[in-house]
Design a protein around this nucleic acid. Sequence first.
DNA 1: ATGTAATATTTTGTATGCAGAATTCATAGT
DNA 2: ACTATGAATTCTGCATACAAAATATTACAT
Lengths: 212, 212
Amino acid sequence: MAIERRPLRDQIREELMLRLERGDFAAGTDINEAVLAGELGVSRTPLREALITLAGEGVLESNQGRGFRFAPVSRKEFRELCAIVAALEALALESSDPAHLREIAPELLRLAREFSVDVAARQEIERHDDEWHDLLLSGCGNERLLDLITSVKAGMRRYTHLMSGDGTPTARAAEEHRRIAERLLEDDLQGAVSALRDNWVNGMERMIPRIP
Amino acid sequence: MAIERRPLRDQIREELMLRLERGDFAAGTDINEAVLAGELGVSRTPLREALITLAGEGVLESNQGRGFRFAPVSRKEFRELCAIVAALEALALESSDPAHLREIAPELLRLAREFSVDVAARQEIERHDDEWHDLLLSGCGNERLLDLITSVKAGMRRYTHLMSGDGTPTARAAEEHRRIAERLLEDDLQGAVSALRDNWVNGMERMIPRIP
DNA sequence: ATGTAATATTTTGTATGCAGAATTCATAGT
DNA sequence: ACTATGAATTCTGCATACAAAATATTACAT
C-alpha cells in the first residue's frame, strides 16, 4: 500500500480546485482562512501555502491586509486565457515527436468518435476533454511547457462550471477533435496545429455568451 | 509619500531573485530556511511563502521532507524556456494594438541603436534588454499573457549570470532589435513577429554553449 | 577497516500565538 | 434620515513553538 506522503499544501490545493470546479465558491468571494482551515481540518499555515500557489496560477487574487479571494470571472480574461492555451498547445503539438503522433493518432480518432455518441454528465465531458488533450500532447518533450499548460488550465477551471446542460458543445468539440486526429493520420502536422487552434477559438466562442 | 506596504513574501521574493541574478546561489544547492531567514531578518513563515511562489515559477524545486533547492540548470530546460517565451512574446506582439505599435516603433529603433554602441556592464545589458522587450509588448492588452511572460522569464534569470564578458552577443542582439523595430515601422506585423522569434532563437544559440 | 544498527542532531512541515490592519457596529451630530 | 466619528470585533500577516522526518554521529560486530 502506497500511503499518502506529500505536503498538506498540495492536497489542500487539489481539494480546493475540486470544490471550485463543483462551483462551490462563487467567483469574487473573499476567503476566510480560519473557517476554511476548520472545514478542511488543517491549520492555517498549509492552507495559506496552498492559497499562495493558487494565487500564482491566477485562480485567486490577494490584496494586502484583505487576504485572498476567488478571482472574478470576465469575458475578457477568458478570451485571454484561451488565446494563451491555444498558443501553448499549438507549440507543444508542433514540437512533438512525429513518430509518436503517428502512433497515437488512431487512438485519438477512436476517442473523438466515442466522445460524440457519449452523452455523459458535464463533469465527465470535461474530464474526457482534458484526457484527450493530454494524450494529444503526450509526445511533447518540453516538460516545462506541459507544466505551464497545466497551470494555465487550472486558472480556466473557474469557468468550466458555468457550462451546464446543452449538448451541442459536446458534439462540436468531438467534431473538432476528430478533425485534428485525421490531420495527424495524414501526417499533416501544420494542419493539425491549426485545427487545434480552431478548437480553442471555437470552444471559446461557445463559452463566451455564458459568462456575465 | 507612498510608504511601502506590501507583504514580506513579495519583498523576500524580490531579494532572492536579485541574489540569484548576482549568482550568489549555485544552482542545485539546498536552501536552509532558518539560516536564510536569519540573514534576511525575517521569520521562516514569509520566507517559505516566497519560496513556494518561486517554486511555482520553476526557479526552485521542492521535495517532501527535503525542503527547497535551486533548480539545477540544463541546456534542455533553457531550450524549453526559450521556446515558450518566444511563442508567448510572439502572441503578445501579434495581439498588440497596431496603432500603438506604430507609435512606439521610432523609440524602439532609437533604443536598439543606442544599445549597440553602449558597452555597459553585463547587468546593465540585461536590464536594457528587458526594458526593450517590455516596451515592445506595452501595447498588448492581454494582461494574463504579460504576467505569464514575466513569470516564465523569472525562471530564465537563473541562466543570465552564466553569460559574462564577451561583447558579441550585445551587438547581435542590438542588430536583431533594430530589425524588429524596422518591420514595425513598415507596418509589417508578421515580419516583426518572425524577427522576434529569430531574436529568441539566436539568443538561445548564443547562450547554449555556456551552459554545463 | 568496513558495514550496520542505534542514537543524537538538524531541518523541515504543521500548529498555535500575537500584533496590527481592515471591517463592522454603535453613537453622536447635523 | 444621513453622515461622521470612534470603539469593538474580525481577520490577516508574521513570529514562534512543536512534531515528525531526514541526516549525521557513534558504537559495535564482523
